[in-house]
């Protein structure tokens, strides 16, 4: 990368008592990317994010945001950050708009126009003038995003932002994050265990497990592994007979699954059809990040 990283974690360790929650994490987050932070429950994602925004102290190491240490120059460092840490809790007895006014007053140069712009962006519409008490989870999530982007931060940190959003909301969020990234040069750091989401959203991911960073990889390497064998599912009317015809594969309901290379798919289809079996659908299950992730973390129990 030719640019300075926006965030630099240097040997970050968090200890609580004798437990080590995050251990020696070193990570550079380049600017202008949507950067995923992936890990199973209890891996230390939220803990790391809490340290990045100064909510918890750092036991060892340091975190630099836009060149300022969060330890030494908290106010300057955090001025570049907008964040949602875990659930977006708001003042329930205030309206959404009053909540935004509240956070706007805490930062420089946010006028009423900007607030309206943000409300439009997250699609809260007229409900913004209702009390937050009356909001659904997804609406609160949207309001959470709104308060995070209010001051046009250079770094946006979202801890499981799709939690509670409907498919439309997830899609809008994804598009919006892409837009922020591309047009405003915002760096977005999202944590999630919704792995398939990450694949659609992120340019790179860092994978954390048991407090340790185990991998950082780019997801935009073009269309890799075209020839690689992939799980392919055939939906048929007579699964038992299909199994016999194909002499292999596994059955789940009306779906027969086989590991096939791309070229083999039409052949298998032809064989099924010739045997008089009706094929209603063919689906390739690409080896997703999810599988890779499960492979890597070995499906370890939490903790």
């Amino acid at each position: 990368m030719q640019h300075e990283p926006v965030v630099r974690l240097e040997g970050v360790t968090k200890k609580v008592g004798s437990r080590t929650l995050v251990e020696n994490v070193t990570l550079d987050i380049p600017p202008g990317q949507v950067f995923g932070f992936l890990g199973p429950n209890g891996a230390g994602k939220t803990t790391t994010i809490r340290m990045m925004v100064g909510l918890t102290s750092i036991s060892q190491g340091d975190i630099n945001i836009c060149g300022y240490s969060i330890k030494e120059h908290f106010e300057k460092a955090v001025a570049n950050v907008g964040a949602i840490v875990e659930n977006p809790e708001m003042y329930k007895f205030l309206t959404g708009y009053q909540n935004l006014r509240h956070f706007a007053r805490m930062m420089k140069g946010i006028d009423a126009k900007r607030i309206e712009e943000v409300v439009r962006l997250v699609g809260l519409g007229n409900r913004i003038h209702d009390k937050v008490r009356t909001y659904s989870l997804g609406m609160r999530q949207r309001l959470g995003v709104a308060q995070a982007i209010l001051h046009r931060p250079r770094l946006l940190i979202l801890d499981e932002p799709t939690n509670g959003l409907d498919p439309q909301g997830i899609r809008e969020l994804r598009d919006y994050l892409r837009h922020l990234c591309r047009d405003e040069g915002t760096t977005v750091f999202v944590s999630s265990h919704l792995l398939s989401e990450m694949e659609l959203m992120c340019d790179s991911v860092a994978i954390i497990q048991n407090g340790r960073l185990i991998d950082v990889r780019s997801l935009r390497n073009g269309n890799e592994s075209k020839a690689e064998a992939a799980e392919t599912g055939f939906t048929v009317d007579e699964p038992e007979r299909a199994l016999a015809v194909l002499e292999g594969g596994s059955r789940e309901g009306n779906v027969i699954t086989l590991k096939l290379a791309r070229d083999e798919i039409p052949e298998i289809n032809a064989r099924l059809v010739q045997a008089g079996i009706k094929v209603y659908g063919i689906q390739t299950v690409t080896r997703s990040l999810e599988d890779q992730f499960l492979e890597m973390t070995g499906g370890d129990p939490i903790g």
Binding site: G54, E75, K76, V78, A79, V85, E86, N87, E89, Y91
Partner: peptide
């Protein structure tokens, strides 16, 4: 108890 402390303390204010 509201959880809003997380939003309050991540502003550029000591």
């Amino acid at each position: 108890s509201w959880g809003t402390i997380k939003l309050l303390l991540i502003r550029p204010w000591s």
